[in-house]
Design a protein around this nucleic acid. Structure first.
Lengths: 195, 195
DNA sequence: AGGATTTGCCTAATACTATTAGGCAGGTGC
DNA sequence: GCACCTGCCTAATAGTATTAGGCAAATCCT
């Protein structure tokens, strides 16, 4: 019987491609075995189970995304860096919808801590050094940016903005403008005027 | 054989409860049948299939969410309305994580158009009337708010903010402040200074 | 009330996915 | 050239999804 040369890495890679083609939630051990023209049970020597496979794909996606982000941020600052980072997420999600979905997989704390997820937070913090924020406002801003990037990408890909003008590219550009303005003029907490 | 009195509505309701308990992606026809102490096949007289069941749960969630939002917005405007609407999403997601996940289910265009999803957009627009935005900026702002609300809630629930101080309630409050400021001073598109 | 009809849940059958246990052959090391 | 180990296989079990057809309970009609 021909040995195909399965490895965890090849399975993860192929699983990521499969995810992009049919959706992350359709990534199944069976489908992956079919893709290698191999019996399903054969995969279990290389990945622990279905959950393990999905986790590996998620970690791959997080790493790819972090690599792209690092690349995009190199040599940029301020609004340029903001837009570059934002576009990394948006473009990656468009090119690799299944991987992007995988990156959203909830990881257990230890796996998450060892993942490229931490690089994402670090890079967002690095980007914010171009603005004048100190703790805890910097953390608030990290969370805001994460929310906007993820929320926008996820709604846009889910078709949430589809039916209406104006173009989503316009909106995206204006949102980046708005975020830049906001970060340059980060508001103090208002005193409650109702006193 | 005792007739349990299955209806699409009861199945949908029970499916929503099940989703909140075990997660929307664990909502299965079999689990639902177990919950009614009924054979799996019996459900197929009431819902077309698994996808249909999930869609019904999604529509229920969208409706509940829209009802809460309408209630929260009544009699409020400006920042108070903004915070009220935002908190509806966040609180609903916390109380009903499975339903909230269901509300994110991608619906086909016709179903989406007939769903309570449109009310959400309308209410966000209504809220924005308290700020001074005209088209197309209003649409941009609708999309921004949707992105922030969904993104924040989704990251917070996914544990994305878990490990670190400051408290996520603080961040949430500051983000609402920031959005209010931003909407009251919505920036023009900057002219490209690179000429 | 009692028969006819509809309706609701059931049994049975098929198919796909996930997972484990154990077998055999092909490549590797001496 | 032999032994071993590794990699993919067969076989078996279990859970989920879905369809077809049956029987009894509820409903309707007189």
């Amino acid at each position: 019987m021909a040995r195909v040369g399965l490895t965890p890495e090849r399975l993860t890679q192929a699983g990521a491609e499969l995810a992009d083609e049919v959706g992350f939630d359709q990534v199944t051990v069976s489908a992956l075995a079919r893709r290698f023209d191999v019996k399903v049970a054969s995969l279990y020597s290389h990945v622990k189970n279905s959950q393990d496979l999905r986790t590996r794909i998620a970690l791959l996606a997080l790493t790819e995304l972090a690599d792209r982000a690092a690349d995009a941020l190199a040599g940029r600052s301020g609004k340029e860096a903001l837009a570059a980072l934002a576009n990394v997420y948006r473009d990656y999600a468009r090119e690799h919808p299944g991987r992007y979905a995988a990156a959203q997989l909830r990881l257990d704390p230890q796996t998450a801590a060892a993942s490229a997820g931490v690089r994402h937070a670090q890079m967002t913090r690095a980007l914010l050094r171009g603005y004048d924020l100190t703790e805890p406002d910097q953390t608030h801003a990290v969370r805001l940016l994460g929310s906007v990037f993820h929320g926008y990408v996820s709604l846009e890909m889910g078709g949430g903005f589809s039916h209406s003008a104006p173009d989503t590219d316009d909106t995206w550009a204006r949102i980046l403008d708005a975020l830049d303005t906001l970060l340059r003029n980060w508001p103090e907490p208002p005193t409650d005027s109702r006193g």
